[in-house]
């Protein structure tokens, strides 16, 4: 599978703070890639470097056929960018803004523009500064979808939006993204789960994992063990087990490389025979929380 975005050893330091620290990431072409991570993980910084808004301290990023530092002018004819904190020309009316943006794109589709305006219920005569946050985000999205970009990059597009607007946006992105690559950053995992087919998890400027959502869903399981008597928890556990908790005769942990026969065999090796095991599929949110807490625990231990 070819890649739309390839990031290699990307580092961005602000004075002594590393916002992005040796990031390696590959976004497959035609995928909807969710870049998730807690606040301050470096998602926005990484995206701004990809979009050539910020300069990296070291490392590089390849965006479609361009080195990210060369992204400007005509390159943006095939890239759309929507961000929660983007400053639009607020004095313009919606129709003026779309008409103005139209001038810059040879592939602008007037019918698609009309369709988006209708779908998003945008008021053409209203000034952007008089629109709600959600409406403004819709305008930004409409102006970024109407020219059918090959790559759409969205930085926290759903942040602070009401559920109805969020659903509308998600639906539109899903529909319109066919034939495009979408990179979308968010800490709102429920939306990402319903939209993305690939996930990258960023924490403290580093990529913890990056894979397809189906692979992620298949390799994470919550494992519940029940014993006849309280078991002894050994000091050494398999590295793929996360957040092990024991309460009386019950033990619960997260298996991060789930394969039923392999997991069962490891359980027997650790606890011996005599336990009953239940494997529960996890939501993205549960996986994210487990990974984040595990990382925090490890940082606490190493500190």
């Amino acid at each position: 599978m070819s890649t739309a975005i390839l990031i290699e050893n990307l580092t961005k330091r602000f004075r002594d703070v590393s916002a992005v620290d040796g990031l390696n990431l590959s976004v497959p072409e035609n995928s909807i890639f969710g870049l998730v991570g807690p606040n301050g993980a470096g998602k926005t910084t990484a995206i701004k470097i990809i979009m050539n808004i910020l300069r990296a301290t070291s490392g590089r990023a390849q965006v479609l056929t361009w080195d990210s530092t060369q992204l400007s002018g005509a390159a943006f004819e095939s890239i759309g960018y929507v961000s929660e904190n983007q400053k639009l020309p607020e004095w313009m009316r919606v129709s003026e803004f779309l008409a103005y943006a139209r001038n810059f794109y040879p592939t602008w589709d007037r019918d698609l523009e009309k369709d988006l305006v209708q779908r998003f219920d945008l008021p053409p005569k209203r000034q952007l500064k008089k629109l709600s946050r959600g409406m403004r985000m819709k305008v930004a999205l409409a102006s970024s979808l109407a020219y059918r970009p090959r790559l759409i990059v969205m930085d926290e597009p759903f942040s602070g939006l009401d559920p109805v607007v969020r659903d509308e946006l998600i639906e539109s992105i899903s529909e319109r993204a066919q034939g495009s690559t979408v990179l979308i950053s968010s800490h709102d995992l429920a939306e990402i789960e319903s939209l993305a087919n690939h996930i990258g998890y960023l924490e403290a400027g580093r990529l913890r994992f990056s894979e397809s959502l189906s692979s992620l869903a298949s390799r994470f399981r919550q494992v519940d063990l029940t014993f006849a008597a309280p078991p002894t928890i050994p000091a050494q556990l398999p590295v793929s087990w996360m957040r092990l908790e024991a309460t009386g005769t019950a033990v619960r942990f997260i298996e991060s490389t789930f394969d039923e026969s392999k997991t069962r065999s490891e359980i027997t090796q650790v606890f011996g025979e005599g336990s009953s095991a239940a494997f529960t599929q996890m939501s993205l949110r549960s996986i994210f929380l487990a990974v984040a807490r595990d990382a925090r625990k490890h940082r606490g231990t190493s500190a």
């Binding site: 002018g73 005509a74 943006f76 890239i79 400053k87 020309p89 810059f104």
Partner: peptide, 8 residues
């Protein structure tokens, strides 16, 4: 907004 538009 103009930073990521095709401004030459």
């Amino acid at each position: 907004f103009w930073l990521t538009r095709p401004y030459r």
